[in-house]
Design a binder for these strands. Structure first.
Length: 460
DNA sequence: GATTATGATTCCCC
DNA sequence: GGGGAATCATAATC
């Protein structure tokens, strides 16, 4: 038997009491001011103290000495007090029992007595529970909350999710259209998850609220017949909330899982290989072949290329890595392509020089046409030209008109040696180049050296 | 459907 | 950390 039951029993057992207090001088004074004899208080105190230590049977015996336990019908009405808590079903209570109860409920000292009993209860039973109540915030819930917030599932409608998707899309590379399609797809699915999450959350909160209200009403109702303090009701509410928050945590967990699955699918989709568009490949090739002696773009050059091609810097790095390897492995295959780009860049340079010459102004090779790189007119192109000018290189028929144009242009401008003297190209750049030494058949003089060790693309 | 091209990843080295 | 090399995975081509 718990203390609560005992006290409830004790309360009914105090049918004849007129007043009482335990340990609260204010209450005592209050009772005294009502004109009750002090002797009564002492009796009540003694009886209450005795109740806390006595058994239910004793209390029952004292309360209903003339009643058989068989008559404890109990009632569905919670207002009928602690005895109803025994769960006893049955017929009506004896008249004198009801009378006693009524007398008890209407007794003018009942509030004071309840106050005392609540206090005792507070000090005994509930104080034990109270120790466990001040739980720190669960780190797991905090993590889940943070994640849901970051993913844009919880928190404001616009924000995290879009940002996360945008970041992922940015990292995805590929064409802007593709990434925006994926982005919108991701957002749509995330919005779906968000909607489900909030809908479920609302349901839980509603259920929690309803249940809490129900329990509070019940306890308030029962507090008419047994000692239930407001504080105890608060505690009960807190317990209910804790239970519901654990359910919420499960909801958050499953939502996080859903988001992770969505994210991984989205990332997998990003991993799907997509060829760069033609323009991007052209830009990259142009750079590669115009820097054939040293196809190692600097960070700045990579950034510029990435910007131009609409891809990421790491994709540029990948592309150059692949290109270098594949070029090395099969130079013959790339020969025509190399020639094509060499001619292309040379023609561009020649055109610029011709324009400059026509304008009767000093040649400014570095002010190339928009879209071409400043490095397009450097010694690498010069190397290509020398090869084209007859070092046993086979020129594809399709390239011949461009070569002819180039020859005319070089003649017009006085050749690329002039360009190389512009400071953009220095002959010693051809040295210390292991890249061309082993790979490029155009190579003229290329003592070994670490790639990029001497001539990084600083002119860019 | 086989082959080729190509972007990405991984491992290793410096 | 950057680059080389091998490899994977997939798009493009025939």
């Amino acid at each position: 038997m718990d203390d609560q039951t005992r006290m409830m029993t004790g309360l009914t057992g105090l049918g004849g009491l007129t007043q009482g207090d335990v340990g609260d001088p204010d209450s005592v004074r209050k009772q005294q001011s009502l004109g009750q004899p002090q002797q009564d208080i002492g009796d009540i105190l003694q009886q209450i103290m005795a109740i806390t230590d006595e058994s239910l049977d004793e209390a029952q015996a004292r309360c209903w000495p003339e009643e058989s336990p068989a008559h404890w019908g109990g009632s569905d009405d919670p207002t009928e007090g602690g005895r109803a808590g025994g769960g006893m079903a049955g017929g009506g209570l004896p008249l004198n029992f009801q009378h006693r109860k009524h007398a008890l409920n209407c007794h003018r000292m009942k509030p004071a007595l309840f106050s005392v009993l609540c206090e005792i209860k507070e000090k005994t039973v509930l104080s034990i529970r109270g120790v466990q109540e001040e739980d720190p915030p669960d780190p797991q819930i905090m993590r889940l909350d943070n994640m849901l917030l970051a993913e844009g599932v919880s928190g404001p409608e616009k924000g995290g999710g879009s940002a996360a998707a945008a970041a992922a899309a940015a990292a995805a590379g590929g064409s802007p259209t593709d990434s925006s399609i994926e982005h919108s797809d991701y957002r749509a699915k995330l919005a779906q998850i968000r909607q489900i999450y909030h809908s479920e959350l609302e349901k839980y909160e509603q259920a929690c609220s309803e249940f809490t209200n129900h329990v509070m009403n019940l306890l308030r109702e029962q507090s008419r017949t047994r000692p239930i303090s407001p504080k105890e009701i608060e505690r009960m509410v807190a317990i209910i909330h804790r239970k519901f928050s654990s359910i919420q945590m499960q909801l958050k967990q499953s939502t996080c899982e859903a988001v992770m699955i969505l994210r991984s699918r989205f990332l997998d989709a990003r991993r799907k290989r997509r060829n760069f568009n033609k323009q991007a490949t052209e830009v990259l090739n142009e750079y590669f072949y115009s820097h054939l002696s040293n196809p190692y773009p600097s960070e700045e050059a990579k950034e510029e290329l990435a910007k131009k091609c609409g891809i990421t810097v790491s994709q540029v790095s990948n592309w150059f890595g692949n290109k270098r390897i594949r070029y090395k492995k099969n130079i013959g295959k790339f020969q025509e392509e190399a020639n094509l780009y060499a001619v292309k860049t040379a023609v561009d340079a020649a055109n610029v020089s011709a324009q400059a010459s026509q304008a009767n102004s000093p040649a400014t090779p570095n002010s190339g046409s928009p879209g071409s790189y400043s490095l397009a007119h450097t010694g690498d192109t010069y190397l290509g030209l020398r090869s084209l000018n007859g070092e046993g290189l086979t020129i594809a028929p399709s390239l011949q008109p461009q070569v002819d144009t180039l020859h005319r242009a070089t003649h017009l401008t006085g050749g690329y040696e002039e360009l190389s003297g512009s400071g953009l190209y220095t002959p010693h750049r051809l040295d210390a180049n292991s890249w061309q030494d082993t790979t490029n058949p155009h190579s003229v003089t290329s003592p070994p050296g670490p790639p990029g060790s001497v001539h990084s693309d600083t002119s860019n």
